[in-house]
């Protein structure tokens, strides 16, 4: 663990992955974003706390790989009204850390703010985000992404962009 965390190259690879993912989200590169996921992927935004049981309790998003695909195809349909016109977005990612490493799998965490501008106005979103990353086909992929919004226990406006 100690040795891994000092592995600057690995940390840099993880950071670059997270920055790229954020850029694909901000710039509506939906298909390229979808390609980052593994086949057993889970995309999770818990509600009412960071550590609920998503099999028993409601989450804001709890997508398996198939549902991630539906989400992307809905955005690509051109008829997802809440994203037509699209939200203008910028993700700000900070505090990137490698939390653990087991064989090839890397658990990484970061803090994220997203500035959103849409027809309603401007909304700032803040979250603790954790990734499970795995090399696959010569590239790093996401097997799990958990976005715990700071205010996920409060009433939230529509969140229909990729966070």
């Amino acid at each position: 663990m100690q040795a891994d965390c000092k592995d600057d190259t690995l940390l840099r690879d993880v950071e670059q992955f997270i920055y790229r993912e954020a850029r694909l989200q901000d710039e509506y590169q939906y298909e390229a974003w979808e390609a980052l996921w593994t086949d057993d992927a889970i995309y999770w935004l818990p509600a009412n706390d960071a550590d609920i049981d998503p099999e028993q309790q409601m989450s804001i998003i709890y997508d398996n790989r198939s549902r991630i695909g539906v989400r992307v195809r809905q955005l690509l349909s051109g008829k997802r009204h809440t994203q037509e016109p699209r939200s203008r977005l910028r993700h700000f990612v900070t505090n990137v850390e490698i939390l653990s490493r087991e064989r090839e799998e890397i658990r990484a965490g970061c803090n994220v703010m997203v500035f959103e501008s849409n027809l309603r106005g401007e909304t700032v979103w803040a979250a603790r985000t954790e990734y499970l990353l795995r090399p696959e086909g010569g590239t790093m992929r996401m097997a799990r992404k958990k976005v715990a919004l700071v205010n996920n226990d409060r009433p939230l406006y529509t969140l229909s962009f990729l966070i």
């Binding site: 509600a47 309790q57 409601m58 804001i60 406006y157 529509t158």
Partner: peptide, 9 residues
């Protein structure tokens, strides 16, 4: 199952 709270203006 717990509630989601969706706010609209």
């Amino acid at each position: 199952a717990g509630f989601l709270q969706h706010r609209v203006q």
